[in-house]
Computed example of a mutant assay.
Amino acid sequence: MSISEIKNEAKRSLNGKWGAAVLVTFIFFLFNTLLSFFGEILIAGGLNEWWNQEQTPIEANLFNIILSIILLPLSTAFYWVFLHVSRHESIKVSQLFTIYSNGKWVLKIIGASILIAIFLVLWSLLLIIPGIIKSFSYSQTFFILRDRPELSILEAITESKKLMKGYKWKFFLMNLSFIGWAILCIFTLGIGLLWLAPYVTTSMAVFYNYLIDHYQDHADKEAII
């Protein structure tokens, strides 16, 4: 499947669901922004104090770090929503937050995010390029965890590396192909991201579906041989 075919499949999957997709994206961005905004105001002691503060207090920085960790499952759920879309399933705003109903899921996603970040930092200590390449290798981890929750974090990372073997360059080019749309979003003051984010994320999900189908076909052929 070519990059253009992947993107066309993403658009077909989103056909008739653009309204819901934009709404989910808007709530996702709004939720992240408002939590950080109101948290900093609360720490500052009020809106006026927050507005007049000359530098961000340490407490606010710590709050943002903790908040970023807490919101990691929400970011993963956002990707999962569009995995549903790529498989022509329904899309609901509630799908963004159901992940928090399972404590094990929350801890697993946070753990996977932190572990991948550590791996990437270690690879980047060598050179920037190896770190970028490894980020492509690990890119399917959270989709895999959605489909195969029985896997451990390291097992999911290993499976991602297997899926991405020989496809990292294609994944890079697919992401690069959206740069023109991203530049246009700047001229819409970011509003265009409400449409671009679903398009990009659904394309990534279609890419993942293609990988697992291709990997399974290859495994079946080897079993026959």
Rank of each mutant, 00 (worst) to 15 (best):
S36K: 10
F29G: 11
P57D: 06
M174K: 07
L35T: 09
K165L: 14
I91T: 07
S68C: 02
A223Y: 09
K11R: 14
L23M: 12
R148G: 03
I186L: 12
N64C: 01
F38K: 08
V81H: 06
I116F: 05
N32Y: 07
G45A: 06
Q53K: 14
I157Y: 02
F187I: 03
I6R: 09
I225P: 04
K168N: 11
V24D: 09
I91N: 04
K161I: 11
N15F: 15
I114F: 06
S113G: 13
M204A: 13
E150I: 00
I153Y: 04
I224E: 12
I109G: 03
M204E: 15
F29T: 04
I69L: 13
A205I: 04
T98A: 04
E150H: 09
S139M: 02
L194D: 03
K11L: 10
I144D: 02
D147N: 08
D147V: 02
S2L: 09
I132G: 04
A77N: 08
K92T: 08
F82W: 12
F172H: 10
I109T: 05
I6Q: 03
I128N: 07
H218W: 11
G46M: 08
E150S: 10
F142D: 00
A44D: 00
I212P: 12
S137F: 06
F26M: 03
L107I: 11
I116L: 03
I129E: 12
L184T: 02
D213I: 11
I153T: 02
F37K: 13
W51H: 11
L72W: 13
S135C: 07
F63L: 13
Y210L: 10
S90K: 15
K170T: 15
A112P: 00
A10M: 06
A10Y: 07
S13N: 05
I114C: 00
R12Q: 12
L14I: 03
F37I: 05
G39R: 11
E222C: 11
T202D: 02
K221M: 15
V200R: 12
V24S: 02
I183P: 03
N48W: 14
G19R: 13
L35H: 00
A60K: 13
I225R: 13
S152N: 10
Y199M: 12
W18L: 07
N64V: 06
I27K: 04
A223R: 05
V200Y: 14
L196R: 04
S75I: 02
I224W: 10
V22G: 06
I70V: 09
R87D: 06
W123M: 08
E59R: 07
E9D: 08
L176S: 06
Y199F: 14
D217E: 13
V121H: 09
S160E: 00
K92N: 13
W195I: 03
I186D: 04
V24N: 05
F31H: 07
F143Y: 15
K165M: 12
E40N: 15
P73R: 09
P198L: 03
K7E: 11
L67C: 01
G103C: 02
V22K: 07
Y100N: 11
T201D: 07
F38I: 15
N52S: 10
A223L: 13
S113R: 04
L35M: 04
L14R: 06
L34S: 01
L127C: 09
F172I: 13
P198M: 05
P149C: 03
L193N: 05
R12W: 03
F63A: 07
